[in-house]
Design a protein around this nucleic acid. Sequence first.
DNA 1: TAGAAAGTGAAAATCATTGTCAAGCTGGAG
DNA 2: CTCCAGCTTGACAATGATTTTCACTTTCTA
Lengths: 134, 134
Amino acid sequence: MQQVPWWHTRLTDAGIRATRKRVLVLEVLLTEAQPITAAKLHSELLGRGNTVGLTTVYRALSSLVDAGLAHAFTQTGETTYRICGPTRHHHLICRTCGLVTEEATKKRPDGFRVEEVYGICDDCAAFPRPANPG
Amino acid sequence: MQQVPWWHTRLTDAGIRATRKRVLVLEVLLTEAQPITAAKLHSELLGRGNTVGLTTVYRALSSLVDAGLAHAFTQTGETTYRICGPTRHHHLICRTCGLVTEEATKKRPDGFRVEEVYGICDDCAAFPRPANPG
DNA sequence: TAGAAAGTGAAAATCATTGTCAAGCTGGAG
DNA sequence: CTCCAGCTTGACAATGATTTTCACTTTCTA
């Protein structure tokens, strides 16, 4: 029934072309469960035998964020990206291990719209580790 | 009864000297209700007729964060700093206007320790504005 | 007061990210 | 099918916040 991939619709709905390079970047995001930096995503693509410039990776990620297909997180000076679903949710991001969890968003009495929650996950609080693993 | 300023105790308890330059930086933080960047804090100090290097401001802010006297926020590529109290709390940070609010931290069933909550405050959601005011 | 340790600052170095600009692709009009 | 305007791409330069370096100064303890 579906003529085009689901993300194609999401992209075009957001007024963004599903170009070859953008789709390549999206494909990597779809295989990465946890947030990835632009640089790592770029070398992943090169490793897969694709030809893409780092600048293009940055721009593609930016487009995907605009289209609501991905979320950007600011960890320690670096921005990481992760695919994200269409349902109303926010993210819990552990400052220690970098793990990201989606959580359904509830309405708050003060009207504040939660987008990201940074903190320490239960595991890391219990067994402190040095830093975000590569 | 109190022989030294309250923050002196907090600093030394954290193993950090209350040097002249650090105190200068702390004084600016105490007068700023909302988060301020290292660069702005530096020019504020110069404006007050003090001689401090930008490098020192960065290091002082870092020390104050380590000592638990200040909190660091990562907005759009820039880090901002704000004085913060000794009670158990986390912060709500509006991505649009930059406003920071302290909120008492409650225990979560999943054990996640909340440190910062980023999102859109009620006012900004109601009346969208261009960007974080200077 | 002396000495060791910590702090300071100007300038250089880092490093992620963005701007530039010429060349490449794409999709619709004809 | 072909052409053209406009979006996209990518190598390289530029930016800008933060950190490192290193020689000098201040602070704290004995």
